[in-house]
């Protein structure tokens, strides 16, 4: 009789290899904490955090098919829009709120950032850097809106409506009294680069960055 039943999917092991930048984010999370992954996709990072860090992991995702896939793996994910739904969560509900490569696609990035740090003690935010030399070069020489491996869309169909450079982001944090606890400069492939994540050098040579923010 037992062979009739399909074996339940393993939820304690990540189903696929994670992007390198997600691995970096995962390494920043302490074990046995409460985490909200905002824009969690099909739950790759959540699944890893649950399995390897025994984290109380929750997710918010706008795509219904990805939510279905995440919930089907036994993950706690709801379908919703971060710009409206983050407001529901009470203050300090989580230890970490994670936002990967999404802030630049929000309508009100400042409010989103404020909400992340309201509902969690720490926010882990990753961003593409619009100040990278290739981007500057493409605009300077090509005279058209830049397209790179990190920013692959045309100006008219890109979801990224609030692109910024690293220095822009550092300025915003200052203006909002947000403390940058840690910062990592990353290559296009998500590999860590050995220079300050918040300086002019990173602003020119990092394709993306990851920041750990606190109030």
């Amino acid at each position: 009789m037992n062979q009739i039943a399909t074996p339940p999917k393993m939820i304690n092991k990540p189903s696929k290899r994670m992007r390198i930048d997600l691995q970096l984010v995962a390494d920043l999370v302490s074990p046995n904490t409460r985490v909200l992954d905002v824009g969690c996709g099909d739950g790759t990072l959540l699944s890893y955090l649950m399995g390897f860090k025994k984290v109380d992991a929750r997710g918010l995702e706008i795509s219904m098919s990805r939510v279905r896939s995440a919930v089907s793996q036994g993950l706690s994910v709801i379908q919703g829009n971060l710009e409206t739904d983050l407001k529901d969560y009470p203050d300090g509900a989580f230890d970490y709120a994670i936002l990967s490569q999404t802030l630049q696609a929000t309508v009100h990035p400042q409010e989103v950032l404020g909400d992340l740090l309201r509902i969690a003690k720490r926010a882990i935010v990753s961003l593409p850097n619009f100040g990278h030399w290739r981007v500057r070069w493409a605009l300077l020489v090509g005279g058209r809106m830049p397209m790179t491996s990190n920013l692959p869309d045309q100006w008219y169909n890109t979801p990224n409506i609030h692109l910024c450079t690293i220095l822009d982001f550092v300025d915003l944090c200052k203006a909002m009294n947000i403390h940058i606890e840690k910062g990592f400069a990353l290559s296009a492939d998500g590999l860590k680069q050995n220079f300050s994540a918040t300086g002019w050098f990173a602003n020119l040579f990092s394709e993306q960055s990851v920041f750990v923010l606190t109030r």
Partner: peptide, 12 residues
């Protein structure tokens, strides 16, 4: 969410 309960939600 307002009480940070553990919740999943799917619309089929």
């Amino acid at each position: 969410n307002a009480v940070a309960a553990n919740v999943s939600f799917v619309e089929i």
